[in-house]
Nucleic acid binder design. Structure first.
Lengths: 225, 225
DNA sequence: TTACATATGTTGCCCTTGCAACATACTTAC
DNA sequence: GTAAGTATGTTGCAAGGGCAACATATGTAA
């Protein structure tokens, strides 16, 4: 694939900002880029897919989305040409994507196997190198955390938010019974809901046997529904 | 301040993962760390503050929050010891924080002037160094974008979401009249709201003279209310 | 062109949920 | 200890907005 033909455009890509044409070529040789065409309505990655390439949208429009079991589609972000996406894998290699990337209009995507970059970094000292890697990793992690929060907020009902949050905590703490770091007032603020409505809905869910709780200790009883 | 006393704990901090005690000391000498105590209910940063330090929560509990003009508090994230925060400035130095960091319980925070790190990185080639900087910068940017999305979703009313979104677009495009990248159905999915309800509310807002629109071109007329 | 799928507008129903107001705990400070 | 401040639970009310159903309009495919 005639990579060089694209280089002129590359100069305008944020990822390559500050780099001269020859330097971009140099990089593309170290990390063989793949340029793929995706037709409208295709998926670049599905939630759960293993991601090992950093992606740059060259042309078209791509949406970062999250779909629930019922096909309810939530658009988290709309990506324009120049956008870098699927970058979370920089945290820990071979990370699975939590979201899907849906092609809104025919698109050109450049995929870069950048994982090596961090491994190859050689600083004055091993310590600094390691530190830098950690910084990148943490940035990626924080990103993931914000995505998790988004998954909660994008629920359209209060019950949905509560369940999304509790299931996330259960997953993160690896146990169906767990303690949350919020009091009622703060939980309401975290879920961006009314405190009294939250209390009311929690009571209902307890009645229905979906969850159980005592102060800040919750148990998710019935994951379905 | 007796930094060394803390070093034993440092070994468990994600930011210093994989580093030996002596290496941590080495880093702390290059980037003089400051350890500050914050009492409960204090703010570490207020939205709008200039941020130049990478922060690590050593002890306590800190909340990343967003407050609107009416003091409505939205907790975006609850931070536990070990968390790194205020990292967005890594994108572009002296960046202003979009969110506030509120001290939920008495906390110890280590502040690292890490901005230099990226400047000091010396790789085999200038190109690779620059690329790495760009990656970090983009990670930080994407982070910021997710935060923007969160600001929309944390609105409790549909009108609030619509306004938050439109004002964001107006700001980003630097003009009160702008085109959005969504059709109605997708805008509903982006705002996580019902499509028909969205249409209804848009019509109302047009009636009330708050906004005007024609297809995908919107104008924000009255920023207040 | 015809047929089918998808996008947009509109409207009635009614449940969920925000809001306000109040009564009880529970904290923190003095 | 008392008092002030904050957290939690409860409940009535009103309405915002989700849902379903339908009519067009626009787009896509054969």
């Amino acid at each position: 694939m005639a990579v060089k033909m694209y280089v002129p455009n590359y100069l305008e890509i944020p990822l390559f900002q500050g780099l001269a044409r020859e330097e971009i070529s140099e990089i593309l040789q170290s990390f063989p880029a793949m340029i793929k065409h995706f037709p409208k309505s295709d998926y670049i990655y599905l939630a759960g897919d293993c991601v090992e390439n950093l992606c740059v949208l060259l042309e078209g429009k791509v949406q970062m989305i999250k779909e629930d079991i019922w096909g309810e589609k939530s658009i988290i972000s709309s990506l324009e040409p120049g956008s870098v996406f699927a970058e979370n894998f920089l945290g820990s290699l071979s990370e699975r994507s939590g979201v899907s990337y849906f092609v809104a209009t025919d698109s050109e995507v450049m995929m870069l196997p950048l994982g090596k970059l961090l491994a190859d970094v050689s600083l004055q000292s091993r310590a600094l190198r390691r530190l830098l890697c950690n910084v990148v990793s943490i940035l990626a992690d924080n990103n993931t955390r914000l995505l998790e929060k988004t998954e909660i907020l994008c629920q359209r009902t209060l019950r949905g938010k509560i369940l999304a949050y509790l299931e996330q905590e259960a997953r993160n703490q690896g146990c169906n019974e767990f303690t949350i770091p919020f009091n009622r007032t703060d939980l309401a603020n975290y879920l961006d809901a009314d405190r009294s409505a939250l209390t009311r809905e929690l009571a209902r869910m307890k009645d229905e046997g979906i969850i159980d709780y005592e102060k800040n200790t919750f148990t998710v009883l019935d994951v379905d529904n």
